[in-house]
Amino acid sequence: MLAAVLRRGEVTLHIGARSWRVFSSLARSGSCRILKSPTLVSLDLHEDWTHKVDEDRQKSFDIQNKSNQLDAALIDGKAIAEEIRSEIANEVSWMKSSIRKTPGLAVLLVGDRRDCQIYVHNKILACDEVGIRSEVSELPECCSEDEILNALTNFNENPEIHGVLVQLPLPERFDEEKILSMLPLEKDVDGFHPSNMGNLAMEGREPLFIPCTPKGCLELLLRSGVEIMGKRAVVIGRSNIVGLPTSLLLQRYHATVTVLHAFTKNPERISREADIVVAAVGMPNLVRGNWLKPGAVVIDVGTYPVEDPSSDSGYRLLGDVCYGEAVKVASAITPVPGGVGPMTVAMLLLNTLESAKRVYGFC
């Protein structure tokens, strides 16, 4: 299978000895046994522009032009996520047998949005599958802000809870920034705390947690054997949840990154220059085949439900990328569903495991 071939790609990164700052030392964990990605600090390199002109003249790219082939290879996020979850389950089991401790995740759900309820349900099921303890606090949309803050305080003060997340979006009447600021840095497994985002952006810094969806996107690229260093990458969308941290993470891997947004002029022309395209807007079929450079690798983060009476659920999901067109231009692409979504949940589980390991000093 094409997906299996992609997943056999090997990525070798050499990590040099470094002097760790105190904060960075807290960020270290055993995740290197599960993920291909090393610590971000280990990727930092001194920038040398001396030979830039010569390099530009070479114009060599490792991603092959596949415009004469019918279909792109499938990057099977579901299969890769299952592999990672299996390894997480093994580590959780090892923790339980070794020190009789279990990682714990708490989720706060406000309101009755069907999609949010489904997302939370899937996260809880995933926790059960790998042996992570989970708690859910469900509050009606008519609840007060104080009730939300009290629920978060209880989670924050519970030593058996190592990760806390607020299911977004919250009902519009609530101050989302104020509520999210209640999450302590050491339990921010979604990776949205300003300190986590700031350390992601800065050379020499290591966030305690990398946001789950960007972390999953990078892991898909690494496990698919896609070269990132020196490549041109385009991130379509600049949200705090996906677009911004994805662009920062790609830069830490030494890609040359351009971020496209709603005010970008000629976005299709800019996108056609990219070796790697990450689409994270939430607008179905925004990225057409003529947005893509032949042979580009495409990561489609978008999920948009459309009515489909033939489906058991009554709807089907579309991505930001027009799959039927993109598959005939790209060299590799993630499907929707079954691409980035399962990886996001897997990274949430991994962040929770890493948090518990830090608390207990478990290696």
Rank of each mutant, 00 (worst) to 15 (best):
N285Q: 03
E307M: 03
L292T: 09
P245E: 11
D320K: 03
L292V: 01
R316L: 03
P309W: 06
T258Q: 07
R272W: 03
A280P: 00
L249D: 14
G295Y: 05
K328D: 00
D275F: 02
Y253Q: 10
A279D: 06
P309I: 06
L318D: 03
Q251C: 13
G289E: 07
H254T: 08
E268G: 06
L248M: 14
P294I: 12
R252C: 09
E268I: 07
S331A: 14
T303E: 09
S271G: 06
D308I: 04
S313E: 00
A330F: 10
C322I: 01
H261F: 11
A262P: 04
A280R: 02
Q251I: 09
G319Q: 01
D312W: 00
V298F: 00
E268A: 11
N266S: 15
G282T: 05
E273C: 15
P267Q: 13
G324T: 02
I276M: 08
W291P: 02
N290I: 05
I333R: 00
M283W: 03
V329M: 05
R252F: 11
V259L: 09
E307A: 10
T303C: 14
S247N: 14
Q251T: 10
L250P: 04
S311Q: 10
I299K: 02
I333Y: 00
A332T: 00
T256M: 12
Y253G: 06
A274Y: 13
R252N: 06
W291G: 03
A296V: 01
L318V: 02
Y304T: 14
E325Q: 15
V297I: 10
A326L: 04
L292P: 08
V329A: 02
E325I: 04
R269A: 15
N266H: 12
L286W: 02
L260V: 14
K328V: 00
G314W: 01
I270V: 10
T258D: 01
D312A: 07
P305R: 15
S313A: 03
V301R: 10
S271N: 08
A255W: 14
V297E: 08
K265Q: 12
V321P: 07
P309D: 08
S247P: 13
Y315F: 15
Y315G: 07
C322W: 06
E325K: 06
R269H: 13
V257H: 07
P305D: 13
L250R: 03
H254A: 15
G319V: 01
Q251L: 14
A262C: 13
E273F: 07
S271R: 10
D308P: 01
P309F: 01
A279K: 05
A330L: 04
A280N: 02
L286E: 00
L318R: 08
F263C: 07
V306I: 15
I276T: 11
E273T: 15
V298N: 00
V287P: 03
H254F: 15
C322N: 07
G324H: 04
T246Q: 15
R269S: 12
L248S: 09
P245S: 14
R316T: 10
I333C: 00
R288P: 01
E325N: 04
G289R: 03
A255E: 13
K293D: 13
D308L: 06
S247G: 14
G302A: 06
T256S: 15
T246M: 15
G282V: 11
G295D: 09
Y304H: 09
A262Y: 12
V281S: 05
D312Y: 03
A274L: 11
V306S: 09
